[in-house]
Design a protein around this nucleic acid. Sequence first.
DNA 1: TTAGGGTTAG
Length: 457
Amino acid sequence: MVCRLSTRLLNICITSLCKAWQLEKAEVVLIDGIRLGYLPDVVTYNTLIAAYCRLVGVHEAYTVLRRMREAGINPDVITYNALIAGAARYRLLPLCLDLFEEMLQNDIIPDVWSYNTLMNCFFKSGQPVEANRIFRDMILSNVSPSPTTYNTMIDGLCKAGYSVNALRLFRSLQRHGFLPQLVTYNILINGLCKSGKLGEARMILKELGESGHVPNAITYTSVMRCCFRHGKFEQGFEIFLEMKGKGYTFDSFAYCTVISALAKMGKPKEANDYIEEMLRTGFGLDIVSYNTLINLYCKEGKLETAFQLLYEIEKCGMQSDEYTHTILVDGLCKIGDIDGAQRHLEYMKRMGFESNLVACNCLIHGLCKVGKVDYAMKVFENMELKDSFTYDSLVHGLCKARKFLLASKLLLSCLRKGMKVLSSTKRAVIAGLRSSGLRREAKELRSAIWMARILHW
DNA sequence: TTAGGGTTAG
């Protein structure tokens, strides 16, 4: 009894220290505890493993598992779930699968949490088909799905571009008596908004209103962002005011949405006013908030201030991300500092950021803007991934350089891949071919555009 | 120990 009480006390201490990010102190308490006869149990080690995953890394957490075994304590399903969640946090899909396999080999039966985490990891890694396979495995293993399972499925489907299937799943669950939670509505509203299905999003929002759930800050932010994206600025700002009135502007999410919208609208003065308001509220800025500010400074051409912020981020120990550097590359391109942009791309590589499609697109656009279209072509040829932004920028650049035949060739290869390009891009190439006396080529391009429209409808 | 909102390019 005394021993069990002591272990409980030890666990309470370790849990509090882990929650306060005091991992080193938690380790000291563990060592001192053992010395004083407070014996750790599976909960002690599970707490430490979860904390290592969250604060240090999954490999370091795995060393705790070894120590746990050395202490004669067997891991359980919670131990493995924590490790799988840790691996999923760092998108280490093969490690997630290895851990799942190791769990099975140790005769530990995976539970709904294990499957949910693995499924989510597959979705986050861009593998919706595999995620669905995990869902099926779960059913075959007689593990009952939880509301989180369905929420993960709906969210994953939306993010993978299958919002229609997500809505279908939602409806079929409802028919089988599933009562959607607020989070389910939020996932679906956000997913439908992002895929441009505004009518359906509005319908779900109406159903949410009738469901008895009260829309929260997340619901409001999703809908507000959707309004801004579709040019309904007045409605967007009305939502922001309503959020303020309800006390839903307690974090940076709503502010970042509004500031970015104003930056896009070319209203830096108003955006700066909101920045000041956000800073006055006193909540700490995270990396997305910093990125929003850097983006605004870049849009204003204030690159020095933007880099000063990057310096601040790094100085306070915060990690900059792909967005931070992509925004800076774009900012440099926009002021015509192509050398600076290329240097920053190199810096990104050195920092360990993988090849970044958006940043490369910015460079191509910047090169075309300053008339270096041949160099833009070289960058294009070396790019592994290309999207409609890549083609749009380059085709426009080629038209500007009066290289209409090459522009037409690129445009066609883009259309054949089923990518959508701007109407202005198509018009520029056809008009260019005509003005150069290439009437037959212009006619052929028009037919090809027409065919592509039918094929990829 | 699992799920939801904010930041980048034509």
